[in-house]
Nucleic acid binder design. Structure first.
Lengths: 243, 243
DNA sequence: CGGAATGTTGATATGCCTCAACTAAAGTGG
DNA sequence: CCACTTTAGTTGAGGCATATCAACATTCCG
């Protein structure tokens, strides 16, 4: 029976060549599993965790807590992602991580990870690269939320999630399950729920994609990409998935 | 005569303890110096550099190139920062880096850096930490540009730059030189030049800070911080500068 | 001194936020 | 299983803020 950490090695292979030994080391790491309820926090702002998580199943998100209690969602993380890898080297969390729908994560102690890096620097470099791709995703979010009109902004978010999910074989046909509410989409893209709603309708009307009841359906990928000005270089996949 | 790379070790010490040997290794690294004209690109989107830069003097910025030829500025980098550290592990640049005013950078080959990491993993971890702080800055930019009103948005940008400059002893009295135009401020914060202008006037009127002719003057730090909802945890300084 | 770049100001329009009312769906308890 | 409550989504009306445009002022450079 394969380790649940197989999702991680699969993810790392999307951008990095790993030797069999590297794979064995990662998949052999001791870890604990934790189930998360929808909305449950994995870590909160200000905490100093001694473990890092790998998403095994479901969707998690990073977010800033804003004064009024509102949130700014920063990024979304699916199977194989490490939503709190930064806590390895930065002790105090400057943001929180929560589960969007029901999720499961594997927890690995920082100690064990650092020991593995000492033994095999290439493993550290692979995860470093992973954190750099995270940074690229944040940069793109800056550009997305600062420059694109509502329709394109939503479209771009969907493009990114679909592309990443596809690369990790998490899509079925042309749909991907995203357990997120309209309010939360607004909190990710910096728009009001009313505008989110109307923009979703426009996307549906344009026959490029639809989002209903947590299901993203991509109907015309090329057109969606064009409309959203999506270009996936920033995700740094070795071989782009075919969509 | 101290190495120009001293600015880098000083920067790393802001968040990481380094041994004397670590310091000696970094400051002893072979490098070349390059002067940049105002606006000159250090690297362009799509390039695959074999060197990474350390800012020695002046201000540099990362930016996305947008379809119409416009830009989205993503972050600003002052003495000691490494604006393209990510190219160490991600070969194709997904954004560009340019000089804002006249600047000078030191270039170190990736090869030399990687060799140093092998020899002293702690050095790699220090620079990794640096890239993670970069990521935190991008996250904060997402929140800033997505949630804050114009005044606070500009104020927050100024708070961050001033705080970082202060931590690196780059401020004189309460002012810091930022060679940036109103257009560029707009391209960083996602607002039109007209709004930038009027918001700057509001800031001046509020007697919290002023920005004129490339000079940021902080007049009432506490009030500016309050108005901008700035809290510096995300910059992860070991000891905050006193302002 | 002349031209270009940068900054300033005003007028206008529109796109998005806010608010409110309503519908639909989902979860809860009798 | 149905009534009830709660949550999520939908729609419309209205007002404000910010983008856009245009004219002008100022500064910077050659």
């Amino acid at each position: 029976m394969p380790s649940p950490l197989r999702v991680l090695t699969r993810k790392l292979k999307e951008h990095t060549r790993l030797t069999n030994e590297d794979v064995a080391i990662i998949e052999g790491m001791s870890h604990s599993l934790r189930r998360l309820e929808p909305g449950e926090d994995l870590i909160r702002q200000g905490e100093r965790p001694a473990v890092s998580a790998v998403v095994i199943e479901g969707l998690t998100a990073r977010y800033h807590l804003l004064p009024a209690g509102a949130r700014q969602y920063l990024s979304f993380h699916m199977a194989g992602d490490m939503p709190d890898s930064q806590s390895l080297f930065i002790d105090t969390m400057d943001h929180a991580v929560c589960a969007m729908g029901p999720a499961q994560v594997a927890l690995i102690t920082h100690k064990a990870l650092l020991a593995a890096f000492e033994r095999r620097p290439a493993l550290g470099f692979a995860i470093w690269r992973e954190t750099l791709i995270d940074a690229a995703i944040f940069r793109e979010a800056v550009t997305n939320n600062s420059t694109r009109a509502p329709r394109a902004r939503l479209g771009h978010l969907f493009c990114e999630l679909f592309y990443r999910a596809r690369a990790s074989s998490l899509t079925t046909e042309n749909s991907y399950s995203i357990p997120i509410s309209l309010v939360q989409i607004g909190e990710a893209t910096g728009m009001s729920i009313a505008t989110v709603n109307r923009s979703l309708q426009q996307l549906r009307a344009s026959r490029t994609c639809s989002f209903e009841k947590g299901q993203l359906q991509v109907k015309d990928w090329e057109a969606l990409v064009r409309l959203s000005r999506f270009s996936p270089q920033y995700l740094h996949q070795r071989k782009p998935p075919d969509i």
